[in-house]
Design a protein around this nucleic acid. Sequence first.
DNA 1: GTACAACATTGACACAGATCAAACGACAGT
DNA 2: ACTGTCGTTTGATCTGTGTCAATGTTGTAC
Lengths: 237, 237
Amino acid sequence: MSSLKVACSQCSLQELCLPFGLSNDEVERLDTLIGTRRKIPRGQHLYRARDNFEAIYAVKTGFFKTDVLLEDGREQVTGFQMAGELLGLDGISGDKHSCNAVALEDSEVCLIPFAQLEQLSSEIRTLQRHFHKVMSREIVRDQGVMMLLGSMRAEERLAAFLLNLSQRFQARGYSASEFHLRMTREEIGSYLGLKLETVSRAFSHFQEAGLISVQQKHIRIIDTDGLRQMLNRPASP
Amino acid sequence: MSSLKVACSQCSLQELCLPFGLSNDEVERLDTLIGTRRKIPRGQHLYRARDNFEAIYAVKTGFFKTDVLLEDGREQVTGFQMAGELLGLDGISGDKHSCNAVALEDSEVCLIPFAQLEQLSSEIRTLQRHFHKVMSREIVRDQGVMMLLGSMRAEERLAAFLLNLSQRFQARGYSASEFHLRMTREEIGSYLGLKLETVSRAFSHFQEAGLISVQQKHIRIIDTDGLRQMLNRPASP
DNA sequence: GTACAACATTGACACAGATCAAACGACAGT
DNA sequence: ACTGTCGTTTGATCTGTGTCAATGTTGTAC
């Protein structure tokens, strides 16, 4: 786990990440606080539930999952995070992390000491505002996941998941229609409240229907509108 | 919808609400910002999805639900809020509310203009800190709901729900073992990702098992530990 | 190149919870 | 007290997804 100097002002993810909306001057002040980058090899934890909380993390490169474990071993994946997204907001409330964050591929994160971030955000209005928006966006995202888990059927969930990934890849300059899944069917299933076999069958079915093409972890979206129409389909007559 | 002057410094909910941890002086500064209280009769909306966001709300008395609606009419209840809890944090991210907030009984809320709250929280360190904790707590709560919806069986979900309500009533000085549900079976079901019939059957089953007594909306918890043991029960052989 | 381990697909069957339906209870308005 | 409405309970049946099991595929270590 090496660490090196890094600067938001040089970072191509500015517009997706914490510095969004800041002036050049302000980004430079943010730089003074974001001291180090950390490499997390695939499979390793960035933090674990019950670890002390002192910093949040911005994904610089790579891909993470967050999950919560029940005593009996059941796992719930609560999210997948990609470049520019923040990790660790769960820790603020109780000074301990409440979930695990695991790298799904070799990744790098920028470490943002939280006490200093609070200090700086009380000085820089736009930073404060943006940080609040980021936290709120997380709450809204969670509402969406609840909708998905509480009211949608298996194939709707998977369609929503694929469309969401597609849109996030696109926002990062990657193809919206072709990408590589970093997570296993089991992790997708855990996130969507389904078993891995159900996920696999839904993939196959989408492929048969000509909506996507699947080869293991490689996904190509052929018919985005068709996928969208999979949503809002309560029952199937 | 009447409005009247109100002060945190006089409020018995201080310890559960936004002023938590503030000094007397600081609470008085908070008073200057929390101008009005609003009465919301049962069944009325406090706000709706897509309403402009300008304030958050603290529940002074009463009981709310928040929900998200899909175009096809499906509803997902995303939470129930009681005295001292904040409503509206979802609106910060997009300057519009992303869910509906409905009073489940005649209620009163304190209106907290958000721009002013941000201003004050940049001046009062403990307020800033506490506000961040409140937002983070919401994120952690949502993780719990995801766990519930994604990995638990019907009776586990209901047991978790009852224990959660019980604990929150207790924190407000009410009985932990005896309370009145403000929501219908359908609303509970929507929150828990179940149909109302399943909720009703689970209540009946808990009653037969001697864990609780149910008479319509009146609940008495007889065996808290028994209820707790309903959790962490993956499968039944 | 071969062998192994991890992950993915597919099929057959089981079951938890959904759906459909009927009856019951509580409460509000007359 | 009577009636209608809304919410709840309970039963019978159906079905989407889980479970169990076998086979296929990919990537890695030797």
